[in-house]
């Protein structure tokens, strides 16, 4: 389930906010900032402090035994160990491929679904509800189902074998090549409903007159998509693109459930590698170093995201 949403304000709301400020504005502002206090305190303690610890851990030798004792400062040794041996670099490359597949499928099929579900009727309504329901299901549930469907005795292999396309089952989840693709596909499967919902909302905002005018001009279906729909969802596309990139980049739950990083290291993306180094090999320093690199990646994406929503807010 995608847990990211843009903080873009409901633009309609802005009309209502007047610029009136009087003398009591200053003290009111101070009181309103007090509303931030609980969240600030909580996040300081349970989000920012942990990140600081992660940073400290990444430059120290920390194992399960020394986890809650003194840490020996080792400088960039953990980073060297993670990325010099090729483990981290391979994982970074894999993450790139993974993110590319998830983003391409997620965006294209999300838009296609939105265009298809724009139509009136029971089928569209039911299908949209079904997709949102699947999206709302815990990733463990979706992951388990797909692990089963893609297994040796799963639906896909049953079809493949019955049709005589192959005489042995397809190794969807335990071949070096297929495993990453399978997990990436299931990740896109999980993000498509959300993207479809957001695209659909953007399409619904197009005034009907625009379509009527296009129809008068005699445009065909494809031209309608190309020249009417695509331009009007462009601002949405930009923000959604960054969100989908982030979603793919930080994803770990389907990997955990379906392959646990395997076979071998075939589905070790960078976030999951960091997790395994810490919780399967108990080398917390190493895992922290890998995770710090992941966090840096997220910081870059967050900056791009903040820029794109600011531009969108300025444009509207």
């Amino acid at each position: 389930m995608t847990s990211q949403l843009a903080p873009t304000a409901a633009q309609s709301a802005r009309a209502a906010t007047g610029g009136r400020r009087r003398g009591r504005g200053v003290s009111q502002r101070r009181v309103r900032l007090l509303f931030l206090a609980p969240a600030a305190l909580f996040l300081l303690l349970f989000s920012l402090f942990p990140l600081l610890q992660l940073l400290r851990m990444s430059v120290s030798a920390v194992t399960a035994r020394t986890l809650n004792a003194e840490w020996l400062f080792t400088g960039l040794e953990n980073f060297r160990r993670s990325f010099d041996g090729g483990e981290g670099t391979d994982a970074l490359l894999r993450t790139g491929i993974f993110v590319l597949v998830v983003t391409t499928l997620g965006m294209l099929l999300g838009l296609a679904a939105a265009i298809a579900l724009r139509t009136r009727g029971r089928w569209s309504a039911a299908l949209l509800a079904l997709m949102v329901f699947v999206w709302a299901l815990p990733p463990v549930v979706n992951g388990s189902v797909w692990k089963f469907l893609l297994g040796d005795r799963g639906l896909f292999n049953m079809i493949v074998l019955e049709l005589g396309l192959r005489d042995s089952p397809m190794p969807f989840l335990y071949s070096q090549y297929w495993a990453l693709m399978s997990v990436a596909f299931v990740n896109s499967f999980a993000v498509i409903p959300f993207n479809a919902l957001v695209f659909r909302a953007a399409l619904m905002n197009i005034p009907p007159e625009t379509f009527e005018a296009a129809a008068l001009d005699g445009v065909n279906k494809w031209q309608e998509v190309r020249h009417v729909m695509l331009p009007s969802v462009r601002p949405t596309t930009l923000v959604l693109l960054v969100l989908t990139l982030v979603y793919g980049f930080r994803s770990f739950d389907f990997i955990y459930v379906m392959t646990y990083g395997g076979p071998g290291t075939a589905t070790n993306t960078l976030p999951f590698l960091g997790y395994l180094q810490a919780f399967a090999r108990y080398d917390f320093g190493l895992g922290a170093a890998t995770s710090v690199v992941t966090v840096l990646g997220v910081l870059i994406l967050a900056a791009v995201y903040a820029r794109s929503i600011r531009r969108e807010e300025a444009e509207s």
Binding site: S47, V292, V295, V298, A306
Partner: peptide
């Protein structure tokens, strides 16, 4: 505040689980 929240909402859980376990 908004900037921090954007960054925090994108934080990979696999990264936060490591220090939280220790803390």
């Amino acid at each position: 505040g908004l900037g921090l929240l954007i960054v925090l909402q994108m934080m990979p859980q696999t990264a936060t689980v490591i220090p939280l376990f220790q803390i």
